[in-house]
Simulated scan of single mutants.
Amino acid sequence: MSAQEETLLARCEIPIIDLAHIGTDVCPMKSVVRRIGQQLFAALSGKGLAVLVNHGIAEEKLKAVYIDLDNFCALPEGCQAQYLRNPVSNHGYLRPGMEQFDSTKKELRHTFNITTLTAAAMPAEEEVPQFINHAVPLARDLTNLSRVLLQALAYALDLPPAILLECHSGMLQGDGRNPSCMRISYYPPVPPEDEGPRCQSDTVSYTRCGAHSDRGTFTLIAQDSEGGLEVKLHDSEKWETVGHLPGAILVQTGELLAAWTTNLLPALMHRVVVPPGTYARARGRHCVAFICHPDNDAKLPTVPPRAAPAPAPPTFTPHAHLTLHHRLLNAAHHLQKRFRETYA
């Protein structure tokens, strides 16, 4: 069996949701949003993830920010240093090793977090031409797509359609009240010493992103065709390769939504591994992730009870304060705790 046949997408095990004819994020077609909400709820409750197609975000926009990040990574370290991540706003550049999910391996990843769209927070035009002209429209597209999904989720959870929008009203506003973030990531080729060390003491073990679940409401993921993304489905302890569908965007539940729905919509553990084979290891990988997060002071509404809630999956255990207070979440407390666990 080929590697392609072994992926979840190739086996048709990830639900695909068609967003065609949805309208705009300001005035979406309610009948279509209800249909998408039903499909999204079924996918996230059953699998923990779904694939979105016909979402309206051109592949060229993604490729442009991939090239911009490559150009940023080629800058001298001194130039990069002025854009390092601000621990308060979470905006800025992360060199490999600054963010660690797996303490046993070296994580090969360059990331530029975008939490505000102001020009002053972006790489200068003379350093990375067009960075802001490419990143800002893409961030706005992903924000608008998140707004549509929030309305769809509200319908599916039997809530007023605007209530989740109100809880997420500050996305990428840059005023510090909402930690939503667009992350542009580049995973460089694997160094040769990882392939065949001469003795055990010389072993250097690499990965691209260690296992973790995302912090927010949900995450949108667009990726190139290089592969490496793996998940643990909520009914299994086995790592499964997701695979690639050209032009599609993956959506998966975050920890806050999982806790808020008492794990009815589970947050999956996922990671990015180094692919096998010399050719694949010598190639870089790119992705964009948009982490949709509620406002820091948001008080999420109570979800109407379901007749037969799904059993709690073993792959995600909500933090104690989330479980006890899931009706009145303070998203800022949860996020700051997770930042302390992750950043060096």
Rank of each mutant, 00 (worst) to 15 (best):
M122R: 00
P76S: 15
S213F: 12
V288E: 04
L245I: 10
A344W: 04
A124Q: 13
E240K: 15
R147V: 00
L265I: 14
H212V: 06
P276N: 14
A282Y: 00
A64Y: 03
H321E: 12
Q173S: 02
V148D: 00
A124S: 07
Y206I: 07
T24G: 08
L142F: 13
M29V: 15
Q151R: 15
P87W: 03
A248S: 15
H321M: 11
L300V: 10
I16N: 08
P266C: 09
Q223S: 09
G277R: 14
A81D: 15
L49D: 02
I221C: 01
E255N: 09
E5Q: 14
S225C: 06
C181K: 08
V33N: 09
I17Q: 08
T143I: 08
A332E: 14
Y83I: 03
E226W: 10
P179N: 01
I184S: 04
P294T: 11
F72E: 06
N178V: 00
T262P: 01
L229K: 13
P28G: 13
C167N: 11
W260S: 02
Y206M: 11
R306I: 14
I67L: 12
L335G: 02
H91S: 05
L335H: 08
S45E: 11
I163D: 05
R35P: 03
A289H: 01
L75T: 07
D25M: 05
H333T: 12
